[in-house]
Design a protein around this nucleic acid. Structure first.
Length: 341
DNA sequence: CCAGACGTTGTT
DNA sequence: GTCTGG
DNA sequence: CCAGACGTTGTT
DNA sequence: GTCTGG
């Protein structure tokens, strides 16, 4: 499932990271950014985005301009939590919080199938998402595909070029972005007309994800998958729904319990978190990853009777030799797996 | 015909 | 327990 | 998703 | 808007 995520990168950075090769023209294109939520609730960079907040996503440009080719992409902001096209009245009068939609039943639910028939598919961009393991006390994890930048000196409020340089150098050019498949709709009855809102498609948890939860977002992993998911002109529903499968090429670590409150929206949320012997919080404030390692703390799973969580093997950490990998769940198997219903 | 629903999650 | 706000 | 509130009256 | 139930 996906009920909270992080996107602390400025729209301009996300835009630059969304540079793509147009499959029709073979041109490298920097997509335009269109803040569709500017008059309602403009996108704000945050490491703690809950349902109903404004997020960033990619859609086909043809949704906004009929004359555009459907392979052309646009980066835009939308409300996360679908407000269906049929809803009448104000935004807040719509009670169900539709932040997720189940892939298994997407075609039998009118709320999702109608936008789907209109090709309203989007890709919601995040550095990673959070999941609370439902033990006592419940413990939050940050789940991601590519390691995010976790040195606050580098973003969000610095020069875009410098961040890109940093990603290129420290992240081997891998993009610290997760592409979650989503459905969006347009509501023209609200006083906030038109309202663009989206929902994250969910699938059964993959092996790695099962450490924490039984559902997970459908993640798109290649430019080809993103191309097909977005290009409703060339790929119909039947062709693209099979793209939405459990994905196992993810990593995760525990994060601070303070991520529970949406008031806490700083970068500490996506740093590895370690509890002390009494399971009390060691505040990650001002700590960099290195300072955890220097304290010699290991990644400890909370234990409880019902817990069958896998423990990561712990090797004593030496100063200066440890890396973020010491705090991760590791994948051992292939990146993809299909799970039968 | 009109009225009313239209959803996911987790938990029991 | 249930709703609202973020 | 989680956290936090959940209320009225009269008076300053 | 569109489907289901009465």
């Amino acid at each position: 499932m996906c009920g909270r995520f992080a996107c602390g990168l400025a729209p301009d950075v996300v835009r630059r990271l969304s540079t793509y090769m147009n499959s029709q023209t073979q041109e490298t294109i920097l997509p335009p950014y269109i803040d569709l939520m500017s008059s309602i609730q403009p996108f704000r960079t945050s490491w703690n985005l809950p349902p109903t907040s404004t997020c960033l996503c990619l859609i086909s440009a043809k949704h906004l301009d009929e004359t555009e080719d459907s392979a052309t992409r646009v980066l835009c902001s939308m409300r996360w939590s679908l407000v269906p096209h049929y809803h009448k009245g104000s935004l807040n009068e719509y009670k169900p919080i539709l932040n997720n939609c189940r892939v298994e039943t997407i075609e039998e639910k009118p709320t999702f199938n109608v936008p789907l028939k209109n090709g309203r598919r989007c890709v919601i961009l995040a550095e990673g998402f959070y999941e609370w393991k439902q033990n006592v006390p419940k413990t939050p994890y940050f789940i991601y595909e590519t390691e995010p930048l976790i040195n606050e000196k580098h973003y969000p409020n610095i020069d875009t070029d410098k961040i890109l340089e940093k990603i290129d150098k420290d992240n081997q050019g891998k993009l610290p972005l997760l592409a979650m498949a989503g459905i969006f709709d347009i509501n023209r009855n609200c006083e906030t007309d038109p309202l663009y809102s989206c929902t994250v498609c969910t699938v059964d948890a993959s092996e790695t994800m099962l450490n924490v939860h039984v559902r997970m977002p459908a993640i798109l992993t290649t430019q080809q998958e993103i191309d097909q998911w977005l290009d409703f002109g060339r790929y119909d529903t039947e062709k693209v729904l099979p793209l939405l499968v459990s994905h196992n090429d993810i990593q995760m670590y525990r994060v601070t319990p303070s991520v529970g409150s949406t008031k806490t929206n700083d970068m500490n949320n996506i740093r590895p978190f370690i509890a002390d012997q009494n399971n009390k919080t060691i505040s990650p404030n001002r700590n960099t990853l290195d300072s955890f390692i220097i304290k010699g703390k290991s990644f400890e799973e909370p234990t409880s009777k019902n817990d069958n969580i896998k423990k990561t093997k712990k090797t004593p950490t030496k100063r200066g030799q440890s890396s973020i990998e010491d705090y991760m769940f590791k994948d051992t198997k292939s990146s993809r797996k299909r799970f039968k219903k």
